[in-house]
């Protein structure tokens, strides 16, 4: 079993880069992260975290982090269902209004919150095994 963290959040990357496999670029958009997560699911990975974590809207925060795990089985239909609905919801928000160009201070705040959300999952995932 192999977990992969997919993120565009530099804080999540910095804090986890020595602990687990990460796909990271600060150039990725919120939707890019969801699309890459979907592609992994098509390749036999299963979702471990909900892609719409947090109540901050997809056209508000630019940051997103997800975790998937490689499984023996083929396509995980539950994961596919969740990611497709998440992409649909995020796209709906971004179509109405694009994410504003935030100041660096606000971007840091969004990073801290996205980090807190994914850390709550990482803590649950790894409570009985090391990263």
């Amino acid at each position: 079993m192999k977990n992969i963290l997919i993120t565009n959040n530099p804080k999540v990357f910095e804090e986890n880069k020595d602990k687990m496999e990460i796909i990271y670029s600060n150039e990725y958009s919120y939707l890019d992260i969801l699309y890459m997560t979907r592609d992994k699911i098509h390749n036999g990975y299963r979702l471990l975290t909900h892609p719409l974590s947090g109540s901050i809207k997809p056209n508000e925060t630019p940051y997103k982090s997800t975790i998937v795990i490689k499984e023996e089985q083929n396509l995980d239909l539950n994961s596919l269902d969740v990611i497709e609905k998440s992409i649909e919801t995020a796209s709906k928000f971004l179509k109405t209004k694009k994410t504003p160009k935030w100041t660096n201070k606000i971007l840091e705040d969004f990073q801290v919150i996205d980090f807190s959300l994914i850390e709550s999952a990482i803590e649950s995932i790894y409570q009985f095994k090391k990263c």
Binding site: L48, H50, S120, A121, S124
Partner: peptide
């Protein structure tokens, strides 16, 4: 309402 799907 947790982030980790197994918690859900």
């Amino acid at each position: 309402e947790n982030v980790y799907l197994a918690d859900k």
